[in-house]
Amino acid sequence: MKALLRWLFFVVIVRPLALIVIGLNVRHRERLPKSGPALIVANHNSHLDTLVLISLFPLRQLPQIRPVAAVDYFLRNRVLAWFALNVIGIVPLQREVKASAGDPLAAASATLEEGAILILFPEGSRGEPERLSRFKSGVAHLAKRHAEVPVVPIFLHGLGKALPKGEAILVPFFCDVFVGEGLYWNGDKQGWMTDLDDAMHVLATEGKFSPWE
């Protein structure tokens, strides 16, 4: 029942929204993982990011695709929590790391072990629209634990213009989705994070974007 609801939500609302109202320019679509487990990391500017990333995959893969999302935001009230967990299918993540709370990445790890395609926004929040901010290192911990899982960087542009943080009205813009090559853990946290940052910046320079201030 919940699976059907999720399927309907993506078929009736998300896909038409992503493909007709917004419109995506996807480059290197062939680099998307054909099956899980895989970790998708992207820059984060808008609530639309998650929906667009999920809609990049064929519908039959939908049950596999799970975005990681912040507990403090998405589970803050019951209605939103129900929607986030059942319809969007989030894997909850505690942003505030407390020593007593145990392993913050346990749920994400377990989902990867089930063979999911996990979506993660290492910037940690949507931040200022259309600005890349530093990736937090949680993603490196995850990559280290799952050294056999490819980490696929995806650069998103335009969704922060269409629906930035704090805005309720969606304004249509064509948006760019540049998919990078999968990276694997290389044994060195600092070096790996630099590789990931570099991969994102290379993807970002593929586009020619007019200023938006």
Partner: peptide, 14 residues
């Protein structure tokens, strides 16, 4: 949409 995505627009003008 293509035009507005192409040209510079102001954030204030959403």
């Amino acid at each position: 949409k293509e035009y507005l995505s192409l040209i510079p627009t102001r954030r204030a003008d959403r």
